[in-house]
Nucleic acid binder design. Structure first.
Lengths: 242, 242, 242, 242
DNA sequence: TATGAATGAGAATTCATTCAT
DNA sequence: AATGAATGAATTCTCATTCAT
């Protein structure tokens, strides 16, 4: 037993070492400009060995994405566990997302490299599903927090919890992207204090949930077809309010 | 004259035809996974012909980006020209951005695919500068609108106009990204009415600018170093408010 | 008549202009690295036009070679016409060859670019023959000079005139090549006075023809087969004299 | 050890096999007209494999040149080691050069095909330097032989040893070139016994070194500028003697 | 006659993946 | 399990030549 256990452990270590190397070089060069040869060199293994641990370059990439998501997930879990009010937690979660992109810049940069969708057919569907599941789980946890905030009366909004999470997530993501290096970053964004910037957007949104907006209506697209036909002002002219 | 004019026009048409084909296939496969061969096939020309109109694959790609930015720029200009109040214009601009991403989905998708690093040294710096200039110009126009809103007393915020534009832009971008097809889109986003979603986020932000937030401080990073040393709660713990 | 004459003249001028342009760019870039496009640009004509005057890139090249040979031929003719003793003329001819390579460096460099033999099948055999004929003619004229030198008693050698010309030509050619730029020139040759160097070699050889060398035997290979079989020392060991 | 040794040996053999194939096809077609595909076919390997052994087509070519020079160098070394008088050795060296061009015709032909410009920037400067060094070394060894001949009183010439080597080398090279197959060889040269021809020229030159030529002056170009200005007869008119 | 747009057959090189050892 | 040599399809780009105008 002890022998096979050690072997198992060593195998896992090797796998981790490959992932580390891949993270380094993918981050440095991007997905397409990184060759398996480069990964092999970085971790001092032979090219062929990589294929004992990962079925393809795509699968290696996807494993990194998975790792990154797990890390983010754990960070968010810890934040949720903190003794804060529900509405405070939401802001803290935005901060957590931002801090993840800073402390795990490689992982975040790697996320952005390719659309996971492109990998369809090149990797186990199973693995893609697992990632989708992980991301959903994070969302659901956040929904819980929002639901609590509503129960506690912190939010008066008529939006559903899920919608609130989506809005918060989207805005936070946009803020982070704009500040991220390695993007087609506009000069002006180089000068802002990234964390403050992200937090300001997130808290502005959260603030807006505290007071009910009477014009709020569901964000769903159920009645979309009908609307299309009647061509309301709303679709052709800017909406002046909600 | 007439002959050379016609030739000129035909040449421009051919160029446009290549751009159309390129847009189609770059949109479908992304930059790296698209070969010049594929573009050539799409527009029924020989591979070599493409090089009569574009110096390299990178330049062809960048021309698409440039076109897209010009289109967006024009759309935004028209919105700004509308007889609306300044604060209404800001919302209308967010909508314009969104509508651009819908009606010119290929262009928008192509924006996102760009990895600036790939283009370095392969494209005229001139062209890159021109694009940067266009993007800056759009921002500056939006700043004007914000400045007007402040002058009109619609916004009480102490933020500088530029900061407001950045926040609005970032949030809108994030919202659009989350709803965009080709992203690692989460299932839940498939179910929202994209335009409403984007507009809701934008208007929530705009709303927050109407009332001064007393805790507001500049977003710049000037005093970053000092802060680093004194390690305030703000940097290690989630901020509870602004 | 006058009209067709003018046309004829213009056509010839155009041809010359193309040749001039080709000479310039072939010299600058070499045969392979020169494209017809470059030639066209240099002479401000369209690519297609070049093919009205020259059947192919190879034929254009060969025409340059032909021109060069004609120039050299004329220069040699003038030298031969000078009122010098026959043996002096031979030295003068070596000098003429050298001076041709200096004053018509482009032509000479172009000579060396490709083996004329490689053009077989890519150009009119006729043209190849014409070039061969021109080169032979030059040789025959030199033979005449040598024959005269022998008749005048300047040379005591038992070599046939043709052999003497060949030796002189070969040595002169070698000397010029060694001093030529654009070759894989050894450093040391950069420091010699090229003309003196060439002339010294030529005159050393000419000097050697003044006195009969008793061991001289014909340079022909008639009896080669026989020799091969008997394997003399001469073939395996260095010959100590002739 | 034995395993890795065998692998090492096999790898070297493969390298040699590629070099052999490359020699064959480069010899047949020249550098530009040979494609890596052709080399690959000749040695029954895949195109990509060539790049495991040679960084580029240029490097493969240069390796052949290097090999050739090494072979010639060894042959010359053996000749120099022979128990001959210094002046006899010089003749023997010319013969050695000639014999190299016969027994290693491919290598010699490949020498001539090289257009150094093509290799610039595509090959390790180191390798180019090594080749330059090898060629210089050969020259220096020959200089030694000449210096000895002078010490032994065989040569009365006032030329410096280096100049003598250069003259001998240039003339021998010219003679060999004229007889070489793949050149724009004149018909008449097909009929001479190449070795005799080469040797005759070399020995004529060597003979001329035995007796001092009173008019000898240094071949250097130190005082070139002065001469340019005073425009002596020597520069415009053929020199009648030395 | 002159043009120059279009062609399409290559060229060099890269690299994910396989497989014999 | 680990290796790394070998593969060969794919990619970008070039250019001599043709041909409709």
């Amino acid at each position: 037993m002890s022998v096979s256990e050690r072997k198992e452990r060593e195998k896992e270590q090797r796998r981790q070492e490959i992932l580390r190397a891949a993270k380094t070089v993918f981050f440095r060069n991007g997905f397409e400009k990184t060759s398996m040869e480069m990964v092999a060199e970085e971790c001092q293994l032979a090219k062929g060995t990589l294929y004992l641990y990962f079925k393809s370059k795509e699968e290696l990439y996807l494993s990194l994405v998975e790792d990154g998501i797990r890390i983010l997930d754990e960070m968010m879990e810890k934040t949720i566990a903190k003794p804060l009010r529900a509405d405070e937690k939401l802001l803290a979660l935005a901060q957590t997302y931002f801090r993840f992109t800073q402390s795990h810049n490689e992982h975040f940069t790697i996320f952005k490299m390719i659309d996971v969708g492109t990998l369809n057919g090149k990797v186990d569907q199973e693995k893609l599903d697992e990632i989708q599941r992980l991301r959903m789980a994070a969302f659901e946890r956040m929904e819980e927090v929002v639901a609590e905030a509503i129960r506690q009366g912190a939010f008066q909004t008529t939006h559903k919890p899920r919608e609130i999470v989506m809005m918060l997530w989207a805005a936070t993501f946009g803020a982070i992207m704009m500040c991220a290096d390695k993007c087609q970053q506009l000069d002006m964004f180089k000068e802002v204090h990234a964390e403050k910037f992200v937090m300001r957007i997130a808290s502005a949104l959260i603030e807006s949930f505290r007071t009910a907006n009477v014009q709020e209506e569901p964000l769903g697209r159920e009645n979309e077809r009908k609307r299309k036909t009647q061509k309301t002002v709303e679709e052709t002219e800017p909406q002046k309010s909600f």
